[in-house]
């Protein structure tokens, strides 16, 4: 198991170094940082001085190593757009998006898995079939539309929950969290629901299909022949065999959620990374884009590593690999 862990984490680091290499190429060779940073009237001497100060005369390898070193500490230089530190810009925005995506993912699992199990074991009953049918609606509704409907119903008409902003946030070091205040949690409900609705139906349909398949397996028949009761059969024997695809799907969907969050953040005026990235693209703000690339890849790689480890925890057959 230890060798397995070392191997997986080693792989993850290799992938991150590769991503950082591409981010570095973009960062270093797309446009001249000196040209973009200095004043129109700067002299050649001033420019050369800045170039030296930025370390742009060092060897390629030295610059890459420095870039990786800085990136590992969350340091991505100054934004070309407004000369603010990229790290600060991202630190301001990242927690909002992260909390939104994590809560949406949790919602999709906590609601999607039980719904999937129940629609599978209730197959043929009216309630299971109508849930299954309504899930098609969930899959096909665009998320901005869901967001607007949620705002109209729960915020505008009923006035139960806020329809925009993040509510009150609490600072924990550089991290700003909305999870510790009532208004912060209330503000999170509608955007998280709107972001996760698609995901919930996806998880539910996947779990249902996997459960139906697994319930036909011989080991389920044999477990019944041993006297195992329905509840243990469903939640112990069958569900565990359905978890792998759910985990894979979830890890892959987190990427999609970050992308979809762009729309949700716009609809709910959520102060996340979505807006930051849009601006960076419009202004060709390379340091911000490089940082965004590194952070999103880091999330992906971390998740994939966790998925690999979860696989091995769940399935003994994979532990040797």
């Amino acid at each position: 198991m230890l060798a397995f862990l070392v191997k997986r984490v080693g792989n993850a680091i290799l992938v991150m170094l590769t991503v950082a290499f591409f981010a570095f190429l973009i960062f270093r060779f797309l446009g001249d940082p000196v040209e973009l940073m200095v004043n129109e009237s700067a002299t050649q001497v001033e420019r050369d001085e800045l170039r030296a100060r930025l370390g742009l005369n060092d060897s390629f390898l030295a610059q890459y190593v420095r870039f990786v070193g800085h990136a590992a500490q969350g340091e991505f230089g100054l934004s070309w757009r407004n000369q603010q530190s990229v790290a600060t810009l991202i630190a301001e925005r990242f927690p909002a998006t992260f909390e939104l995506v994590i809560i949406a993912t949790l919602l999709s699992l906590l609601i999607g898995i039980p719904l999937g199990v129940f629609t599978a074991i209730g197959r043929g009953r009216w309630w299971a079939e109508s849930l299954q049918l309504s899930s098609i609606v969930g899959v096909s509704l665009p998320s901005f539309f869901v967001g607007i409907i949620l705002i109209l119903v729960f915020s505008v008409s009923l006035g139960w929950l806020p329809g925009y902003g993040r509510g009150e946030v609490v600072k924990l070091g550089w991290w700003s969290t909305g999870l510790l205040t009532a208004s912060g949690r209330a503000a999170l409900v509608l955007p998280a629901l709107s972001l996760s609705l698609f995901q919930i139906t996806l998880v539910m349909r996947l779990v249902r299909a996997e459960m139906l398949e697994t319930l036909r397996a011989d080991f389920i028949k044999f477990a019944r022949a041993r006297g195992v009761k329905h509840r243990a059969l469903w939640f112990r024997h069958a569900l565990k065999n359905c978890l792998m695809p759910v985990i894979t799907l979830t890890a892959m969907q987190v990427g999609n959620l970050i992308a979809f969050a762009l729309v949700t953040e716009t609809v709910f005026q959520w102060p996340g990374m979505g807006m930051l990235f849009m601006q960076a693209v419009t202004f060709v703000d390379i340091p911000v884009m490089a940082a965004y690339l590194c952070i999103v890849s880091f999330i992906f790689v971390t998740l994939n590593t966790l998925v690999d480890i979860a696989y091995a925890v769940i399935d003994p057959r994979l532990r040797a690999a």
Binding site: A217, D218, F219, K221, F222, A223, A225, R226, H237, K240, N241, I314, D315, P316, R317
Partner: peptide
């Protein structure tokens, strides 16, 4: 009790 044909598929692989 029961014994079925294929012992591999009769046992739950995850336990």
């Amino acid at each position: 009790g029961a014994i079925f044909q294929d012992p591999l598929t009769s046992l739950n692989p995850l336990f």
